[in-house]
Design a protein around this nucleic acid. Structure first.
Lengths: 203, 203
DNA sequence: CATAAATTTGACTCTTGAGTCAAATTTATT
DNA sequence: AATAAATTTGACTCAAGAGTCAAATTTATG
């Protein structure tokens, strides 16, 4: 068995970096599993074995299962925030910009290992609240963009919240079928989703 | 506490009907709970208490938890099949028909207690396969419709499968946020989703 | 190559929740 | 009211999986 963890060794040998990197690898790998089978259908032992570790070793990097789920969510929202920081490249209108963002979101979910997790209800109340607030923050940002687009005439009228829920739903659902329909090319999905999203809201 | 089960008494007194009705009530109530908190975050005891029963009584109607989840899925797909049986009312083109179907789907999810369940991975392999095959059947039917629409010129070109995944995703995701955003009116959601779906695929 | 810190492990404990069952209770019917 | 079937229950068993810990092993560095 190839031990995933071996790959991560950094050079001058910084213990903290090493540890942090392995920890990240643990979270990421667990995230994959959570997405594929669901949080409760995957055990810590399985997660450990996938990485070539024993359960006890896993707990050296992580203090409990829920923490892992929590950090998975954080990783995803960090990545989305990063995309949202991108400024509109030039004179494009809001619709164009929104479409570009959306395509980046799709790419994030298909190409990187990052996934939009669902099992929010399995989180502690505190963590759940935190994760939801981050999601809301992103949602609000996009809603604001839609409203702008409605002002500058590039996006058609209608409840901005519903408009956003619709296409963000399509995005969220991606993870549910993406794994199992291999014959679709990532970039094709991104392009197509970008177009269908745009057509759905263009003025 | 109001015992939900009391409401269901039928008249001439048919034992089988009575039993079947209560059983359905159990499944439906459990389905609500599954949707709200997730299959694994709700115990059989909780489901029982919601109905004013003890766990043991619950097991009089149902042989195990997984069976309940399975039947929830079946109920949903039955309802969707029923909608899909609706023939296009008159001379409308395929796009109009598809939009009408879609609006009915949204209504199904917002107005009735029926919900699109996610925890497919918590099912037995057999049941999982069965449920997925039913979902695929529905998906294929809709894909076929899209292709028809592309032929008759009402729907724009593009990979029919991706087109369907997109708007069905928006639909699936409804359940995730619907509960918690009460200020939206059901019929508004249906109308809006219908429009955005149509605009996204119209030729 | 000695050593101290970092990492890993096997073998545990403990909790939660699914599922069972014999006995108690309720109900429709005579 | 008596009774037989249907329904409900309390009090169990059992398995799975999360989390712990002292001891063993590996590793970077002098």
């Amino acid at each position: 068995m190839v031990k995933l963890m071996d790959a991560i060794v950094k050079e001058p040998f910084d213990r903290e970096k090493q540890f942090a990197a392995k920890r990240r690898a643990v979270i990421a790998s667990a995230g994959q599993a959570f997405r594929r089978k669901g949080y409760h259908n995957i055990s810590m032992v399985e997660i450990a074995k996938t990485l070539g570790l024993s359960k006890a070793a896993l707990y050296y990097y992580v203090s409990n299962k829920e923490e892992v789920l929590f950090e998975c969510h954080l990783m995803t929202y960090d990545a989305m925030d990063a995309i949202l920081k991108t400024k509109p490249s030039s004179v494009t209108n809001t619709l164009d910009y929104l479409q570009a963002l959306y395509i980046d979101f799709v790419r994030l979910l298909t190409q990187s290992g990052v996934s939009l997790l669902t099992d929010v209800d399995s989180l502690t109340d505190d963590n759940k609240a935190f994760v939801i607030s981050r999601r809301n923050k992103i949602e609000r940002k996009i809603i604001r963009l839609v409203k702008e687009g409605q002002k500058d005439g590039s996006i058609r009228a209608g409840d901005a919240r519903l408009i956003v829920f619709f296409f963000m739903g399509a995005l969220n659902w991606l993870n549910a079928w993406y794994d199992t329909s291999g014959r679709l090319v990532d970039e094709d999905i991104a392009r197509h989703f970008g177009e269908q999203m745009r057509a759905g809201i263009a003025a």
